[in-house]
Design a protein around this nucleic acid. Sequence first.
DNA 1: CTGAAAGCGCTTACAG
DNA 2: CTGAAAGCGCTTACAG
Lengths: 343, 343
Amino acid sequence: MRGDLSRPATLADVASRAGVSPATVSRVLNGGTAVAPGTRALVEQAIHELEYVVNGHARALAAAASEVVGVIVGDMSDPFFAHIVAGVQDQTFLAGQLALVCSTGGDPSREIGQLEHLRRLRAGGVILVGGAIRDHHHQLELTRQLTGFLRRGCRVVLCGRPPIPDLPQASAITFDNTGGTMRLVEYLTGLGHRRIGYITGPMAQSTSRERLHGFRITARDHDPALVAEGTFTRESGRVAGLKLLRHKGVTAIVAANDLMAAGALAAVRTDGRPVPQQVSVAGFDDIEFCQDTHPPLTTVRLPLREAGATAGGIACGLAQPPAGVIRLNADLVVRGTTGPVRE
Amino acid sequence: MRGDLSRPATLADVASRAGVSPATVSRVLNGGTAVAPGTRALVEQAIHELEYVVNGHARALAAAASEVVGVIVGDMSDPFFAHIVAGVQDQTFLAGQLALVCSTGGDPSREIGQLEHLRRLRAGGVILVGGAIRDHHHQLELTRQLTGFLRRGCRVVLCGRPPIPDLPQASAITFDNTGGTMRLVEYLTGLGHRRIGYITGPMAQSTSRERLHGFRITARDHDPALVAEGTFTRESGRVAGLKLLRHKGVTAIVAANDLMAAGALAAVRTDGRPVPQQVSVAGFDDIEFCQDTHPPLTTVRLPLREAGATAGGIACGLAQPPAGVIRLNADLVVRGTTGPVRE
DNA sequence: CTGAAAGCGCTTACAG
DNA sequence: CTGAAAGCGCTTACAG
């Protein structure tokens, strides 16, 4: 079939085989301008015979257009990110685009490097997922990078992190982290809990700070010693839970995400205290498995996949960037791990 | 700083600002050939001042090299895929490459389209994750696509699916699906279970078929009516579990993955039968949450992240393609959902 | 409806 | 150690 098996066919190959000019082949490919049906058939035949696949790099270079959306996440093994990415991909698929998923492995400095990578590939959209890092230098560098993206017409979306005041052109989709935690803690307070332990995520991240903030302003007479820091992993939640249980009179433990709550649940069990009779436990995010823990986990539901889809739609250019910030609700989901304090 | 703020700086801009030729800038960028220290400094200064970022498309076009690895998965919200992708990304990061993650949403026909997309971008490596589809036409088309990749020197890795006889150049990393299931069922048989219900994944996928095969050849006197088909989701497992429980004398339910096992567990609970006293339940994969179900889920452990990392290393060119198929173990993990049959 | 030509932004032999 | 030039594979005004 092919003359030179080692070299993929080019548009020029197709043109000469079909007996037309490269421009015509390009028109058939892109379908903008009209092409005579007969000519079109000839070209399509040649494309088929040569198993021609357009070179995306050449196209991107010539047309200055990109069909790639970049997504920067923490770690895919965390369901929080996995569900958001699934939502993004629902949209990139619809748009016929590709998602370049970069993970930082939780190391904020990597975020910048990944952005640079995405800039190289001239991503048409970029989505930053999850908590922003507080570090000032990092923020500065981030703003600089994103400015570069915006300047060339790239769509920038912040998903699950606060808007950047200096960059109002960047769309922002936020979760009601503070409100969700407040509703959860108010509910616990209503059940009579007074000494509530809190397992926070890394304090450098906005998500952690917002959730902890909700806890602090709602937990009455709250003892600063009752806050332990984890890393959003199950194991860190287990360790933090064990630590919190050493304090006298703790009747409830709230974790900043479900993974850590699962770890805390295991810690309470290890300690031999019944849940929720002696200790209540709650998480945040409402990942699917919350229904299957023992008892089922009380938590705060976040529409993760929906958030990802919204972000993806904007980043692909399928949806218009919103005028203001899109705020997504965080609803309390009461299950079996929480109950009234025993007198 | 920049003359024209709307246009990103090009290598030519850098060259003229530094007072050198484009070739020299390219040399500084790629670091192959030697460049005089003074010249290098000049160029680096210009790069910095212009905030220059190399155009990856132009580079890929000129050098015919790509720094992108494609990964095709089912759906990121399934931990099976999420963990494998996390492993892949561990390696792409080390290699300084980017992962283009395409999801098929479980629709096999999408796999081909996504591959075509990856071909366009001249991915340097491509990883197909998870079960292969049996459909003959699909197989043919897949082989055709992959041949195209291989022909141009792209590294092809099959991760969690069997090797393709026609394409020995494609690396394959397989899980011991059959053996793992056999060990699980033998263990159950050893506990006295005779009527074991099995929840299989979609029969079109190789993963499902391999696991079911392990079940069939191990379960003694196995009743064909005791196999229900799910879709690897929790909900499908719940529905299938309910169905299996209607059969008389079922003392154990084995699901082809943990998500469906969690659903089955919920079904058994709904039915009011104690686990494992009246019904044993088991899954496959050993995702993290298995430790937290009630009771903790007996399952078969798959080294998912490790598999992803191995695949990623090969796809990035960091590791040599293996001589033969890499077979990964699937170890039985006994927890609380399984126990002896009560007389 | 179609073609010739310039250009997208790099890299890489080839000279020097 | 450095530069001039050709070429990578497309797209897109500009003519006709």
